[in-house]
Simulated assay, not measured.
Amino acid sequence: MTSLKRLAVYCGAAPGGDPLFAEVARELAGIMATRGIDLVYGGGKLGLMGIMADTILAAGGRAYGVIPHALVEQEVAHHDLTELYQVTTMHERKAKFTELADGFLCLPGGIGTLDELFEAWTWNALGYHNKPFCLLNVRGFWEPFAEFMDHVRDAGFLSAARRAQLLIADTPVDAIKMLDEAAGQANQGIVW
């Protein structure tokens, strides 16, 4: 039995420069639909966000979008979702992601993706939630970031235990497996 029922996927409102990013987004969404894992995401229909939503819906899965009113037009809100939550601020958006999801997965993305990752990680560190997070390292996209976080740890600003929380997977299957195992531990009361 899976512990992961809903997964927040952070990713770009653009497709990125490498076609593999979109291919992996489709693969991830297909696996999620097959395993009955709902998508929680930014609510847009462009870029990797739109690819994730369209793919999971086409496969019979469910997609829950969370988008601030100010971004409905800019990110071109996806109105064909299982449910689209419109919120006032980015803070409310990230709080809703945390409320709805059992874990967080980052595909390649820009500053918005990084902002969402850091808030999920910080909230975990502060004890606001006990949910796991993982980077899907498509074609080595996250390697420079992981190296920087090692540097932050080595400089004494991040504990080894906190750094170890940042899961990194090379495939969608591995990412879901790692997140599911970590979510299961969290459900058993193990501090993740």
Rank of each mutant, 00 (worst) to 15 (best):
V76R: 13
E99H: 10
V173G: 08
G43S: 10
T34L: 12
K5R: 14
V72P: 05
A155L: 12
L84P: 02
F118E: 09
L7Y: 01
Q165R: 15
P68G: 07
V138E: 02
I51E: 00
H69R: 15
P108E: 01
F157E: 11
K177D: 14
L166M: 15
T89G: 11
A77Y: 04
V9L: 08
F133H: 12
A182E: 04
R93A: 00
R163F: 05
A77R: 02
L117T: 02
F148L: 15
P108I: 01
D102F: 01
D115M: 09
A22H: 03
V191Q: 12
E143I: 11
E27F: 03
K45E: 13
R35D: 09
C106S: 13
E75I: 03
G17F: 11
Y10H: 10
G127H: 13
T98E: 12
G127T: 03
D18T: 05
A164L: 07
W142T: 00
N130I: 01
I168S: 08
M149C: 08
N137S: 11
G184K: 08
F104Q: 06
Y10N: 04
M90P: 11
L57P: 11
F97V: 00
R62S: 11
K96P: 02
W123A: 07
F157Q: 14
L46C: 13
A8T: 04
R162A: 15
M1K: 10
A155H: 13
L158E: 09
E73D: 15
G43D: 01
D54T: 08
D154A: 14
I176E: 02
A77P: 03
G44W: 01
L105T: 02
A169F: 03
G65T: 00
D170H: 15
F118T: 10
Q188C: 12
T89E: 09
S3L: 05
M52I: 06
H69Y: 14
Y128L: 15
R153I: 00
